[in-house]
Every structure is written in structure tokens, then in C-alpha cells.
Design a protein around this nucleic acid. Structure first.
Lengths: 132, 132
DNA sequence: GCAACAAATGTAATGTTATTACGCATGGAT
DNA sequence: ATCCATGCGTAATAACATTACATTTGTTGC
């Protein structure tokens, strides 16, 4: 589940759209951008997104109901990524922190909680927007 | 913004509903539970929830579009709370971790990012459900 | 008290996000 | 060739959230 997947046509289109975008997109925005490639229904997008997130190629930003292409190879092998989302410009920075992961892991172990998916999302204003 | 607020009638009703619930509720579930108290429209709920979250009495769980009453006094004075959400039974545990907060704060400072709201949500299976 | 202003409310309509249901097509594996 | 898993197309609907506008209530200063 970690390396080059053979994406289907729809998955390729959705992934391409997300990769080309300069920020996160909602499923419906993706749909709109793929209308002239034959997309007609939300489900076509959601199905592709499901697989792409399974593969780890795409991340869902829970707090803004949007999706981003994975920032790079660094995100593989990490249990939990973190995102900083600028509410001014919409840009997202993806990062991970060993210590944070570890602390959340400790909490889970101590409480007998078995985690499957972790969301860490900081909303605020990015450096560029603060400067402007 | 930290102590005993005078809640309005609607805020009281919504807060009461959330406090009485044994887990997170969606806005529409709250609406349904308050129909016989005169609630008719989603906005009545959303408006109350906005204030209650401002006051820190209620937290929004971004990853499941739901709301919970604050677990206790410990949550005041914390920048970022964390939640463990059981996908089996729907129970939520609220906690905070100094180290996690600190690490995310460090990242923000180092990247010139000014955070306003942070969501940390672990989804998985709780101890009780694992035992069953 | 009362005018002026801010906050909260009621209601309707609409916008946005996500899923269910059903049938068909495709591509291996036996 | 049949079976089965996966993917696809389409329509309908469910679930979540906001905008707009009119009215009421509450507070402040006079």
C-alpha cells in the first residue's frame, strides 16, 4: 500500500486535479473542474478520493471538508500528519512531528484506545498573509 | 470569556441537550430533540452552538460534524484539546497534552504561522468496545 | 422613562457536502 | 466460460450549514 499504484482513469483525473491545484479543493470543486473530462456526479469524485486517501496519495482536511494531494514522499510511513491551514489564503502546509505522534500514541496505549486515523489541523494565518 | 456566562434561553436549551447526552450530537439531532421546546430551524441551533463554543462550553468535533459539552473545568486555559472518538460506540474522551501543545506551538512559531484554532482528533476503537 | 443601539430570535430559502441504491461494464482467476 | 471482485454511470436523497430579512429583546446613556 506504499508504492506506485496503478490508478484508474477517474483516480488519475482526480489526483491530477488535486496535484495541479495550489491548495485544497472540495469534492464539488474537483467535480466542476472535471466536467469537461466527462465527470457528471459527485460519487465519481468521492469514489476516487476514497481510493486515493487509502493509498496515501491524498489527504482529507476534516476541518474544511477538503482534500489535498500529498505534499511529498515524507508523508509515507507516518501514522499521523499535521496540517497548518491558512484561513486567509487557503494554503496548507503539511508536516509531521515525531513527538506529537509519540505523545498521542502514549495516550492511546494508556487508555486502551486503538487509533485508526488521526487528524491534526491548525487553522490560523500563514506567514505570508501576516506580512501582507 | 472564561467564567459563568449568562446563557440565553436558546443557548441554555442547546447546552442542556448536549450535557444530557452521553456522546456528541449533530446540530440536526439537537434540533430534533428541541422541537417540542419550540425549535423549528437549524439556525437556532447553530447560533447557540456558535456562542457556546466561543464561551468554551462546547467543542466541535470537526471530523464527525458533531458537538460535545465540555468535559470539565480542566479544559479551560488550554489552547488545544484533543479528542479520542470511538467509531463503534460514539463515545468521546477529551484530553490535553502539554507536550503536544508545545510542539505544535513550536512549529507555528518557527513557521511564522499564527494559530487560531487547533483540532486534534483520534478516531478508532475505545477500550470498552475492544473488550466486547 | 425613553431614545438609540447591540444582541438575540424567528422563519424561509438556499447552498454545500456526502451517501444510498441500482444496474452495467471490465478484467482477472479457476 | 463462469465466477467474482472492482470500477463506473446515473439518479435520488440525506446530512450539514449559511444567507437574507424582518422582528423582538436587552442595555446604555441621557
Amino acid at each position: 500500500m506504499n508504492a506506485h499504484h496503478d490508478l484508474t482513469k477517474n483516480q488519475e483525473l482526480v489526483f491530477g486535479t488535486l496535484s495541479a491545484a495550489d491548495g485544497p479543493l472540495s469534492a464539488y470543486t474537483i467535480l466542476d473542474r472535471l466536467r469537461d473530462r466527462g465527470f457528471r456526479a459527485p460519487l465519481q469524485v468521492y469514489r476516487a478520493l476514497d481510493k486515493l486517501t487509502d493509498y496515501g496519495l491524498v489527504h482529507r482536511l476534516e476541518s474544511i471538508n477538503s482534500f489535498v494531494a500529498c505534499a511529498g514522499p515524507h508523508c509515507h510511513g507516518h501514522g499521523s500528519l499535521a496540517f497548518a491551514i491558512c484561513e486567509k489564503c487557503g494554503q496548507v502546509e503539511e508536516f509531521s512531528d515525531e513527538t506529537v505522534e509519540q505523545r498521542l500514541g502514549v495516550w492511546s496505549r494508556e487508555h486502551g484506545f486503538k487509533p485508526t486515523k488521526t487528524a491534526i489541523e491548525i487553522r490560523g494565518t500563514c506567514a505570508a498573509c501576516l506580512a501582507a
